[in-house]
């Protein structure tokens, strides 16, 4: 599904990613952990095509296509989804209108007719229930005045609406209480499937109790320095990152 080979990226001339190699196969869930400033968010941004980063080396293949060659919106329409760590507010644009545009853009890309109003509303209803998103939030402007937890729920709701092939969850657990975390995880798990994969970027092991990963990678100083299974996450939780640093001889 996703093949990252020797990916290097810089921002303002400063190298953040220093050669990432990662392969995600259909159906897999990969967790990426690491200390602050390791490059976790940068990886998500570079994969989804945010401006401001220079790719200096490496390649990324997504569903057999050159991902880096595509515009951000094309990548999304191909099935790549980013759950933002800090979702931005868009005043005056209702969530309903926003999602309708997004869903229909994707359908157009797939050669499908746009959803009829009734069908769309039914879809909205189903997905809202899935993440227990309050109805009124869907009628408000995108993320405007949402609490931190509501924003994260709204992200997972959008993910459910767009049914991506590969989701990148960037610190989706930060700022969530345990109930909200369970709901979010429920939403994510409901979307797991044979041909869907996820990359879960997180700081804490906690989320991985609910979203059980197939692989855990440690990102440190722009590189994946260790790969293991979910036990690695537990080990990190217990020992902290200093242990990795020591192992690397720093």
């Amino acid at each position: 599904m996703l093949k990252i080979k020797n990916l290097h990226a810089t921002i303002d001339g400063k190298e953040i990613l220093k050669g990432i190699d990662l392969e995600v196969k259909p159906g897999e869930v990969h967790a990426i952990m690491g200390p602050n400033g390791a490059g976790k968010s940068t990886l998500g941004n570079v994969l989804t095509g945010r401006e401001g980063y220079d790719i200096t080396e490496g390649e990324v293949e997504f569903l057999g296509k050159d991902l880096l060659d595509m515009e951000a919106d094309e990548r999304a329409k191909e099935g790549l989804f980013l759950s933002f760590q800090y979702p931005v507010e868009i005043p005056g644009v209702s969530m309903v209108n926003f999602m309708k545009t997004a869903v229909n853009e994707k359908r157009k890309h797939q050669g499908l007719q746009p959803l009829k109003a009734g069908e769309f509303l039914k879809l909205m209803r189903e997905k809202k229930e899935l993440v227990e998103l309050k109805s009124e939030l869907a009628n408000r402007s995108v993320n405007e005045g949402f609490s931190g937890g509501e924003k994260k729920r709204a992200e997972i709701f959008q993910m459910a609406m767009l049914e991506p092939r590969l989701s990148i969850l960037d610190e989706t657990d930060s700022g969530l209480d345990i109930d909200a975390l369970r709901t979010v995880a429920k939403g994510v798990n409901a979307l797991r499937g044979e041909d869907r994969s996820s990359i879960v970027v997180t700081h804490y092991q906690r989320l991985l109790d609910y979203i059980v990963p197939d692989f855990v990678h440690v990102l440190y100083n722009g590189k994946i320095v260790k790969t293991g299974t979910k036990e690695l996450a537990l080990e990190l939780e217990e020992k902290g990152y200093d242990w990795i640093k020591k192992e690397l001889g720093e």
Binding site: T48, G49, R50, E51, E71, A72, D73, R75, A76, K77, F81, L82, F84, P87, V88, I90, V93, N97, F98, M99, T101, A102, E105, K106, H109, V142, Q158, L162
Partner: peptide, 18 residues
Amino acid sequence: QIFYCNQRGISTEDAIGM
């Protein structure tokens, strides 16, 4: 804001209009 829309599959042009 534009990138957020892009990431949901909405082109820059439509995002600006929106």
